[in-house]
């Protein structure tokens, strides 16, 4: 063992253990329950209002490189798309990365098939913009006067552009990202948000698979362990004993 990584290794091993154990348990029981996410309800509300007003809703993943946030976003996109299919509301998707286009089309098509509404799908509403994503997105939001605006994924400064553009039409806005530098803007500007890991948990709730469930459980267990360690450690330090604090850095 190298110096200074023993506890890191234990944390890693614990993560892997809980991940496989709870994934396997889910395979047997098929049970997974997590707390309600307000943002999911807001998405439905936005699509409902768009239906009443006869206006479309808009979706974007932001401009960040492809990462795990997209995988959670696909599940949430499918949720939104199936609501749109159900209520006959258009959803326009602005995309910056070429590789995401076929995946997006696939996800939306699946949602429409499941609702039995494939004949109402507008395939031209999935729009690839590449590097000109930001001005094109703002232009789309203004021209279509969208009633709902969703942005889930690896967001950068385009989040505030999208929020400000859609706010002019009083759109209901729901966004989510793990990028800490953008969380403040979406928290201030949106009606509901997914804070970081919330979007992974929401994805697991909507469409549980052993991998998703295992990941949520592993993170949950570690969070509880960390809080427990913080409490014990802080009490020990208060009493003048720093042994746990030094141990955890070993």
């Amino acid at each position: 063992m190298n110096a200074g990584v023993t506890v890191s290794f234990i944390v890693f091993a614990l993560f892997v253990g809980v991940f496989y154990y709870s994934g396997a348990r889910f395979k047997q029981t098929g049970k997974f329950s997590a707390r309600k996410f307000e943002a999911l309800g807001k998405m439905e509300e936005a699509i409902g209002r768009a239906t009443e007003m006869g206006k479309p809703v808009h979706w974007s993943y932001g401009m960040g490189a492809f990462d795990a946030q997209y995988l959670a976003a696909f599940v949430l996109l499918e949720y939104a798309a199936s609501l749109c299919a159900k209520y006959d509301t258009r959803m326009i998707v602005s995309i910056a990365l070429p590789e995401v286009v076929p995946m997006t089309e696939e996800v939306i098509r699946k949602a429409y098939i499941e609702q039995g509404k494939l004949d109402t799908l507008h395939t031209e509403d999935v729009r690839f913009w590449g590097g000109s994503h930001n001005p094109a997105m703002i232009g789309t939001i203004s021209r279509e006067q969208v009633a709902g605006n969703f942005m889930i994924g690896s967001l950068f400064h385009e989040s505030i552009l999208s929020i400000e553009a859609a706010a002019r039409y009083n759109a209901i806005q729901v966004m989510g990202t793990q990028n800490t530098h953008q969380l403040p803007f979406i928290a201030a500007g949106c009606d509901a948000i997914f804070i970081g890991a919330e979007m992974f948990a929401a994805a697991a709730q909507l469409e549980p698979t052993p991998v998703r469930v295992g990941s949520v459980w592993a993170a949950d267990v570690l969070n509880v362990v960390f809080v427990g360690l913080m409490i014990i450690g802080a009490l020990l330090v208060t009493a003048g004993n720093t042994s746990l604090k030094t141990l955890i850095l070993k």
């Binding site: 997590a34 707390r35 804070i195 919330e198 949950d220 969070n223 809080v227 913080m230 409490i231």
Partner: peptide
């Protein structure tokens, strides 16, 4: 500690 607990989703 409280904000870390916020990210425990299965605890209801």
């Amino acid at each position: 500690a409280a904000a870390t607990m916020y990210f425990v989703f299965t605890l209801q």
